[in-house]
Simulated scan of single mutants.
Amino acid sequence: MSAAVGLPEIEAARARIAGMIRPTPVDPSPSLSERAGVPVWLKFEHLQHTGSFKLRGASNAVARLDEAARAGGVAAASTGNHGRALAHAARRAGVRAVICMSALVPRNKVEAIEALGAEARIVGASQDDAQVEVDRLIAEEGMVSIPPFDHRDVIAGQGTLGLEMIEAVPELDTLVVQLSGGGLIAGIAAAVKARRPAVRVVGVSMARGAAMQASLAAGRPVQVEELPTLADSLGGGIGLDNRHTFAMVRDLVDEVV
């Protein structure tokens, strides 16, 4: 199977999670349209059940688990939003969830995860430190890893956003998408480029600790220092053994800012 997630997987994910997520509005922004000089539309994914797009990928990944995996439970490292989404999806499926986070994750996000019945573990000062604990849970307790971005089912779930956007705005010319590990923009780009190849996809990353941008510049996944940033949800590396998102972002995304 190709490392790239394709349109059939994204369409299947859309059907699979239809009753689990909220198709969110796409509305025009008069103020941004005036400033940009072109019509600007916003995808209101903050209205999703857990407050972010992450619920799409997490719901698809949990729904795809077999009975043995469900019995063992799921674990993930997260900067907060994926953990909250996975906790929600796991509770819906009756599956144990352990979310490992660094000390950089804001307390309100930790509390939101705990409120959904998952166990939150604070480990170290980076996503890499948190991932070490996830790896231990997999090796010693038989849990299943559902990472925040570099996972076929997660990417396919996030790609459902792309289908909704091009259907809501048929005249779409350019998509501007936040970029960290690349799961969201990889899924969106795969969906949109398959349906509308001429649409430009632009990724926006924070200036401090932009791991995907550094990796693209190096031509391979590289490690960067994780630094405090206002965009705390974009923190973390892409993994030196990245299987999917690096290649998809490299091949499908037109520009990174």
Results as ranks from 00 to 15, higher is better:
residue 45 E to H: 08
residue 156 A to V: 06
residue 75 A to C: 15
residue 146 I to P: 03
residue 148 P to G: 03
residue 66 D to N: 15
residue 70 R to K: 14
residue 19 G to K: 08
residue 62 V to P: 10
residue 11 E to T: 13
residue 230 L to S: 12
residue 112 A to C: 08
residue 213 Q to W: 07
residue 231 A to M: 13
residue 178 Q to D: 14
residue 73 G to W: 06
residue 21 I to D: 07
residue 49 H to Y: 13
residue 98 V to Y: 06
residue 76 A to D: 03
residue 179 L to W: 10
residue 246 F to S: 04
residue 7 L to I: 15
residue 80 G to R: 04
residue 167 E to F: 07
residue 95 V to E: 04
residue 249 V to F: 08
residue 138 I to C: 14
residue 203 G to L: 02
residue 34 E to G: 07
residue 67 E to L: 10
residue 95 V to M: 10
residue 79 T to N: 01
residue 240 L to P: 11
residue 226 E to S: 02
residue 242 N to R: 02
residue 30 P to F: 05
residue 73 G to I: 08
residue 191 A to I: 09
residue 85 A to M: 05
residue 62 V to A: 03
residue 61 A to T: 10
residue 43 K to Q: 03
residue 124 G to A: 01
residue 207 A to W: 08
residue 205 S to P: 12
residue 67 E to W: 10
residue 45 E to N: 13
residue 75 A to V: 15
residue 182 G to Q: 12
residue 57 G to T: 10
residue 73 G to A: 03
residue 97 A to D: 10
residue 200 R to F: 04
residue 197 P to E: 08
residue 154 V to T: 11
residue 255 E to H: 15
residue 69 A to G: 06
residue 226 E to H: 01
residue 166 I to M: 09
residue 43 K to F: 05
residue 32 L to S: 01
residue 64 R to G: 12
residue 212 M to E: 06
residue 47 L to W: 13
residue 248 M to T: 06
residue 254 D to Q: 07
residue 80 G to Q: 03
residue 237 G to D: 09
residue 178 Q to H: 13
residue 196 R to M: 08
residue 3 A to H: 15
residue 46 H to W: 14
residue 199 V to L: 11
residue 183 G to I: 02
residue 60 N to Y: 11
residue 176 V to H: 00
residue 12 A to H: 06
residue 33 S to P: 09
residue 40 V to Y: 00
residue 164 E to C: 07
residue 254 D to L: 07
residue 104 L to M: 12
residue 46 H to K: 12
residue 249 V to S: 08
residue 192 V to A: 07
residue 195 R to Q: 11
residue 116 L to M: 12
residue 174 T to M: 01
residue 196 R to L: 12
residue 190 A to Q: 06
residue 236 G to T: 06
residue 173 D to R: 01
residue 83 G to D: 05
residue 153 D to A: 15
residue 106 P to I: 12
residue 194 A to G: 02
residue 169 V to I: 14
residue 177 V to Y: 07
residue 188 I to K: 00
residue 181 G to L: 03
residue 216 L to E: 14
residue 56 R to W: 11
residue 157 G to V: 02
residue 133 E to Q: 12
residue 165 M to K: 01
residue 138 I to H: 07
residue 145 S to I: 06
residue 158 Q to R: 03
residue 202 V to S: 05
residue 188 I to T: 03
residue 115 A to F: 10
residue 196 R to P: 11
residue 230 L to H: 09
residue 183 G to T: 05
residue 191 A to G: 05
residue 107 R to S: 13
residue 105 V to G: 02
residue 180 S to R: 01
residue 28 P to F: 04
residue 71 A to R: 14
residue 221 P to A: 02
residue 238 I to W: 11
residue 105 V to H: 01
